[in-house]
Design a binder for these strands. Structure first.
Lengths: 224, 224
DNA sequence: ACAAAAAGCGAGTGATCACTCACTTTTACT
DNA sequence: AGTAAAAGTGAGTGATCACTCGCTTTTTGT
């Protein structure tokens, strides 16, 4: 599992801006600067004067190309989300899901949980900022759902239905199974990072993952 | 299950401010106004001039009593959280958990999920603002965890351990079971309200709850 | 009753913000 | 080369913000 950072992906994308479109160099600089600052400190915390400074451009130039600050955000978020964030978030998931039929579902889940825990740990700041922005701006939330959630849902759907067909999973509504999987994963991250890091530490990450997967697969009820 | 709104609780608390402490009437008005505005629009969106206006007080008076705007927040949040929000959030949970030994765990969970779904639906705005503030201010997040999460965790611990003792639940680490329960609940709410409301609507709330409880109890794996 | 302290006041301060506009420079087209 | 359009500029605008300060009013203790 390779580990190119989100930052690298961003920088690379920013360089690629050079080749395409009929943008002025200055306009590209504005986008570059905005991407950098928004990713670093979020939208609200980045002022237009900062963006201008970072871009080496007069503040008036910004508003020559974008009619408002929010306009920059929208111009920046869609392509970045689609070309950098979504691929970055989904890359490993796609690999893990690829060999669906070979591995037992339990193993796929274990790998997935381990991988997601790593991803969130390594990119805590960016995750935080993304959630924050998704919280505030409907457009970003919807774009995130459309570009990331929709994909992962489709991938999961295929895997889950295949596993139901071979009798490895119960024939429940796919949507409910997907929800259970994602909920369990979100809960794992949430408990470790936010809600209860102390008690979480009573077991190693591997043990916690094993517990989560065990419960996801077999439930918490005792079978008489 | 009674339904006093969060708003009512807030207003009642605000009235009770009258009786206690050595506060000036104006100072109480400032707290009242702050509580109202913060609950309505959040901390950042409420300006000190607004608070002053709402409180019927000069802006200078605010800073006579509180050395900064954040100071008001901290003075307001701890007691409100402890005396209004936490009881409000936990009230029904406590009732549902009360008759622990009588009802099967499945039934308790079903009631709990149903109740939480109702609570979030009926108080969407306040939930949103609380999460938003918890996101931004470490102090609030920690206060929420200490006053709400800690309580619910303790209540759940007792119930879970009792149910493990009578053989209704598997002898897993309590903490992992609690995480599974809470994750499933958060997931239910998250999918319905944010992530996938369309597909969620394919089943009724009751059906979705039943599915979540079923999976929580029995897992998603097929038992050969 | 009187003075000191506390409470209250509101115009004012300086900072920052997104955004504008009159103007200059560069680019593109003929 | 000449010109019109596009790009770029930066001082300026008005709004808003949290917060201050010199002053007046009210409360308190004796």
């Amino acid at each position: 599992m390779s580990k190119p950072s989100f930052e690298e992906g961003l920088l690379q994308y920013v360089e690629e801006l050079k080749d395409e479109s009929e943008m002025t160099e200055k306009q590209r600089n504005i986008l570059r600067a905005s991407i950098k600052l928004f990713a670093e400190k979020g939208f609200h915390a980045s002022s237009t004067s900062e963006i201008a400074k970072e871009a080496g451009v007069a503040e008036g130039t910004i508003f020559r190309h974008y009619k408002s600050k929010k306009d920059i955000l929208l111009a920046v978020v869609a392509p970045v989300l689609l070309k950098v964030a979504a691929p970055f978030i989904l890359k490993d998931v796609r690999e893990i899901f690829k060999e669906e039929s070979k591995k037992p579902f339990t193993e796929v889940m274990t790998q997935l949980y381990r991988n997601r825990l790593e991803l969130v740990t390594a990119n805590e700041k960016h995750v935080r900022i993304m959630l924050q922005e998704a919280f505030f701006h409907d457009e970003i939330r919807e774009a995130l759902i459309a570009s990331v959630f929709a994909d992962v849902k489709e991938m999961a759907r295929k895997l889950i239905e295949a596993k139901v067909d071979v009798g490895e999973l119960r024939p429940l509504p796919t949507q409910a199974v997907f929800r259970a999987v994602l909920s369990s994963m979100i809960g794992l991250v949430l408990f470790r990072q936010v809600l209860d890091p102390d008690e979480f530490g009573n077991y190693s990450d591997e043990e916690q993952i094993a517990l989560s997967v065990d419960i996801l697969m077999n439930g918490i009820a005792n079978r008489e």
